[in-house]
Simulated scan of single mutants.
Amino acid sequence: MGTTIRAELSKKNPYWLEKHRYYELKHFCQQYPIWKQAYNSLGGLSSRQADLAMCSNKYNMSNPTERIAIIRSFYSERMGMIEKTAKETDLSLAEYIVIGVTEGMSYDLLRVNYNIPCCKDVYYECYRRFFWLLNKVRG
């Protein structure tokens, strides 16, 4: 999936973000499926050695249970940030916003695959608001 370059929002738009900051946040969100898979795979001592090694080097821990807990917390925090921001954006569309921003689905694909209950203009207004709110959360 490549990055499609779109026209920037007008600076007069209340949800305007600088183009490169928007892409940074977009790519942050697109890591969600990777985090979810890694989080689910870290269920016990037979967890992925690459993740354990990364944490071992970073935090200098020898206790595997502690390492797993810290890594799961890392992934959970990031996934929760996206889910919480989507709920703050619009509670009724949060599920669709999460799918759209994490899987790169357009409104048209959401309409066909998930029967999203709003029009295109409403969805993209929420989409822009989501990234504006995420920008505040991420700092």
Rank of each mutant, 00 (worst) to 15 (best):
M79Q: 04
P33E: 10
I99W: 04
S76L: 14
C119V: 13
T85C: 13
T3Q: 14
T3Y: 08
Y23S: 10
E103S: 07
G2H: 06
Y22V: 12
N57K: 14
K36W: 07
H20Q: 15
K58A: 14
K11F: 08
K12D: 12
W132M: 08
M1R: 05
Q49P: 02
Y75F: 15
P33L: 06
Y32A: 06
Y59C: 09
E8V: 05
D90A: 01
K11V: 15
I99K: 06
A50F: 09
V112D: 12
R128H: 14
R21F: 13
L45Y: 06
M1P: 06
I99E: 10
N40F: 12
S76Y: 09
Y59P: 01
Q49T: 15
N115F: 10
T65W: 01
D90G: 02
N113W: 02
N60F: 09
Y114W: 03
Y39N: 08
I82K: 02
T65S: 08
G2S: 10
E66V: 13
K36P: 00
A69Y: 00
L134F: 07
I5Y: 03
Y39G: 03
G100L: 03
K12Y: 08
L17S: 07
K36C: 05
S56R: 12
E24Q: 12
T3D: 13
E125D: 12
A53S: 07
A69W: 00
A69V: 04
A7N: 09
R128D: 15
S106K: 02
T65N: 07
R21W: 11
S10Y: 01
A94C: 06
K12R: 13
P64A: 12
Y127K: 10
S106R: 00
E125G: 06
W132T: 07
I5H: 00
V137Q: 08
R128A: 14
Y23F: 15
E24S: 12
A86E: 00
D51F: 13
L9A: 03
